[in-house]
Design a protein around this nucleic acid. Structure first.
Length: 557
RNA sequence: GCGCCCGUAGCUCAGAGGAUAGAGCGGCUGCCUUCGAAGCAGCGGGUCGGGGGUUCGAAUCCCUCCGGGCGCGCCA
C-alpha cells in the first residue's frame, strides 16, 4: 500500500541521517509513527509525524529531528516531488507523478484483486454472525449484524485469510419448545379442536402460516396423535420451515453461510456433558441450591451463573462453551463472533471459559453492534418477536432493496446506535447515499461504452502517457483511487466496515468533480488514452469496494 | 446501584492524538445543443453534551457530571 512504501522511504532517510551523525543511534525497529493523508491538501499528499515521535528517543527538539530526516529524504525523485518540514515538526510529503502513475497501473494489473493483500495468508478464521433464534422471521435488527459480519468476512478474505462463515442454530431449549407449542395450538385450531394458546407463545401471523403448511402437507391427523409425538413432529416442521425462511432471506441479502451449526448436536454428542466435567475438574463449576454454577466471577462477572438448572437441564451457556471449543477443534486459530449488544454480558464468561482450556483470550474476538432503532415517520416502532410486532428484514429488502440496505447498515460504526426510519427509507430510496456511488460507476461504464462505440478502447495502462494527467481534478482523483489497499487493510484489521463506505463516497465525489471539469473522449488521442486509463482504474476501485460491501456495481441504472 | 456502548449541523451519521471539524437528507440560488443532471457549483447551518486534566497539540486519551441505549434470568 502507498503508506507502507512511504514509511519505508522515511525509515531509510532516518537511517541515513543517523549514519551521517545527524541523529543519535535510535532503537531498532523505530517506534511506530504515522504516514497518513492530512486533512488540508496544502499539507501534502501524506504527512508523517516521525520527527515528533522520534524527538524523545533522539533527545532533540522535533524540528531538529525533522530537519535531519528531511535532508535525507529522496527529493525530488520518482517517488517524491518534494517534502516540507512544517508546524511542530510534521514532514509533509508530495507524491511524484511517476509514483501515482505506477499505482494506477497496478490497479489495472491487479483488477479484481486491486485492494487485496496477503497479510492473512494461511490463517484460518471463523466468523459467526446472525445466529438468530429460529423462532420467527429475521427482523431488521438482525440485518445489521448480518451486514457487519458478512462485510468483515469479505474484508478478511481480501487480506488473504481463509474465512469460514457460520450460523449457530439455537434448535434446543425452551424457546423452540415455545415455538412448537405455539404452532401446535394454531394447528389444533385448524383441526377444530379446543386448544389453549400458550401464555408465553409467539403471537405472529407466521405461526399460523406454519400450522397451515403443516396441515397442507400432513393433513390434520396429528391432532389425534399423542401429544408428545405431535409436539415433536410440529417442532421439527416449524424449525425446518423457519430455517428455510431465514436462509432464503439471507440469500436475498447477499449472505450465504458455509455451515449451519446445530446447538442440539452438542447435546446429542454429549459435548455439553463432557465439557461440564472438564469445567468441574478445573474447579470452575460447583453445586449450590440444587443447581450447578459456573465461577464467572473469576472472569470479572459480578456474580456466578447457573450452568445446569435444578431440574437438570443445561442452560444456554453450557452449550456455548463446548461450541466455541469445537470451533478451535475444527482448526480455526482465530474466532470472531458478531453479536448484538444485548449479549455484552456473555463476552467475559465465554472468553474466560475457553481460556480455561488453554486458548488465548485474544483468539476469541467479539464484535458487538448496537441495535437498530426502528422508526416510522419519526415514531418509534416497538419490536418484539413474541408479540409479533416487528418489521422483518424481508420487508426492508422489498422496500429499499438489497444494495441500499447493505450500504446503510455498514455506513455507521457498529458500536454506534442507529436510527432507521422505515417510511423515510421507503420514500427516499432513490436518494440513498449508495446511489451516489453506484451512479459514478455507471457513468464510467457509460463512458467506456461510448469509447468502444467510437473504436477507442482503453489503451494498456503501460502504453498510456499518464503524464498528460495534469488537471487538479485528475490529480485528486488518481490519488484517492490508489489508497484502496490501505483502506481495505484498515477496515479489515480494525473491523470497521464503515471505512469502505467513506472511501467509496470520496472516490465517487472526486470522480463527479472530475467529470464536470474534464472531458474524457476528445480529439487529443494521447489525453483521451490517459483519461481512459484513469477512469478505468476508478471503475475497478469502486467495483471492488462495492463488492466488499455486498452492494452491486451496476453498469447502467 | 454496577458494567459496556453512545452523545458531532434541523434529521441520519462519518471523522488512525495533528494543522481552518465533514457528508447525505432537508432549505435556498445557479448550471443540461457536447462522454448519463441519480450530477456539479454556491449560500445557510456547529459552545463536537457540560466541566476538569494529560499533551507541543484533544471531537479523539484520562477523570467527573448530565442525557440516552443495552446488560446485570435457573430466557436464548
Amino acid at each position: 500500500m502507498v503508506t507502507r512504501e512511504l514509511a519505508a522511504l522515511v525509515v531509510a532517510a532516518v537511517s541515513r541521517a543517523a549514519a551521517a551523525g545527524e541523529l543519535p543511534q535510535l532503537p531498532e525497529p523505530l517506534p511506530p509513527f504515522e504516514v497518513e493523508p492530512p486533512r488540508d491538501a496544502r499539507h501534502g499528499d501524506y504527512a508523517t509525524n516521525v520527527a515528533l515521535v522520534l524527538a524523545k528517543a533522539a533527545g532533540l527538539p522535533p524540528r531538529r529531528v525533522g530537519e535531519a530526516v528531511h535532508r535525507h529524504l529522496p527529493v525530488p525523485s520518482a517517488d517524491l516531488a518534494r517534502a516540507e518540514l512544517a508546524g511542530p515538526g510534521f514532514l509533509n510529503l508530495f507524491l511524484a507523478p511517476a509514483f501515482v502513475h505506477r499505482w494506477l497501473r497496478r490497479a489495472h494489473e491487479a483488477d479484481r484483486r486491486f485492494g487485496t493483500s496477503d497479510e492473512g495468508r494461511g490463517r484460518r478464521v471463523l466468523v459467526e454472525y446472525v445466529s438468530a433464534n429460529p423462532t420467527g422471521p429475521l427482523h431488521v435488527g438482525t440485518g445489521r449484524g448480518g451486514a457487519v459480519g458478512e462485510t468483515i468476512a469479505r474484508l478478511l478474505e481480501a487480506l488473504g485469510y481463509d474465512v469460514s462463515r457460520e450460523y449457530y442454530v439455537n434448535d434446543y431449549g425452551g424457546q423452540v419448545e415455545t415455538l412448537a407449542r405455539s404452532v401446535e395450538a394454531r394447528y389444533l385450531e385448524l383441526a377444530g379442536c379446543a386448544a389453549e394458546f400458550p401464555a408465553d407463545g409467539y403471537q405472529g401471523a407466521y405461526v399460523g402460516d406454519i400450522a397451515r403448511r403443516i396441515a397442507d402437507r400432513e393433513g390434520l391427523s396429528l391432532a389425534r396423535a399423542g401429544e408428545a409425538e405431535r409436539l415433536a413432529r410440529v417442532q421439527e416442521y416449524a424449525l425446518s420451515m423457519m430455517l428455510e425462511d431465514i436462509r432464503e432471506t439471507l440469500e436475498a441479502f447477499g449472505i450465504r453461510f458455509d455451515t449451519w451449526f446445530s446447538e442440539r448436536t452438542l447435546h446429542e454428542r454429549s459435548d455439553v456433558r463432557r465439557c461440564l466435567e472438564a469445567l468441574r475438574e478445573r474447579d470452575l463449576v460447583y453445586e449450590e441450591d440444587g443447581a450447578a454454577w459456573f465461577r464467572s466471577t473469576r472472569f470479572g462477572d459480578d456474580k456466578d451463573r447457573v450452568i445446569v438448572r435444578r431440574d437438570g437441564r443445561p442452560t444456554y451457556f453450557a452449550a456455548d462453551v463446548p461450541y466455541h471449543l469445537d470451533k478451535y477443534e475444527r482448526g480455526f486459530e482465530h474466532l470472531i463472533d458478531v453479536w448484538g449488544v444485548d449479549h455484552v454480558g456473555d463476552v467475559a464468561r465465554v472468553r474466560g471459559a475457553v481460556g480455561a482450556f488453554g486458548h488465548a483470550p485474544s483468539s476469541l474476538e467479539v464484535v458487538l453492534h448496537q441495535h437498530v432503532r426502528l422508526k416510522n415517520e419519526g415514531e418509534a416502532v416497538r419490536m418484539s418477536k413474541r408479540s409479533g410486532e416487528f418489521v422483518t428484514l424481508r420487508d426492508l429488502l422489498e422496500a429499499v432493496g438489497r444494495d441500499a440496505a447493505r450500504f446503510f447498515f455498514i455506513m455507521a460504526s457498529p458500536s454506534a446506535p442507529m436510527d432507521f426510519d422505515f417510511a423515510l427509507a421507503r420514500r427516499q430510496s432513490s436518494e440513498n447515499p449508495v446511489y451516489y456511488v453506484q451512479y459514478a460507476h455507471a457513468r464510467i461504464c457509460s463512458i467506456l461504452r461510448e469509447a468502444a462505440r467510437l473504436g477507442r478502447e482503453v489503451p494498456p495502462a503501460a502504453a498510456a502517457d499518464l503524464g498528460r494527467l495534469t488537471a487538479p481534478e485528475e490529480w485528486v482523483l488518481a490519488k484517492r483511487v490508489i489508497t484502496l489497499p490501505e483502506v481495505v487493510y484498515a477496515a479489515a484489521m480494525r473491523r470497521e466496515p464503515q471505512r469502505l463506505c467513506a472511501y467509496a463516497r470520496e472516490v465517487a465525489e472526486a470522480f463527479h468533480v472530475f467529470y464536470g471539469q474534464c472531458r474524457v473522449l476528445s480529439d487529443d488521442a494521447a489525453l483521451t488514452g490517459a483519461r481512459l486509463v484513469l477512469v478505468d482504474a476508478v471503475r475497478r476501485a469502486l467495483r471492488n469496494t462495492l463488492d466488499l460491501a455486498g452492494v452491486g456495481a451496476p453498469e447502467r441504472m
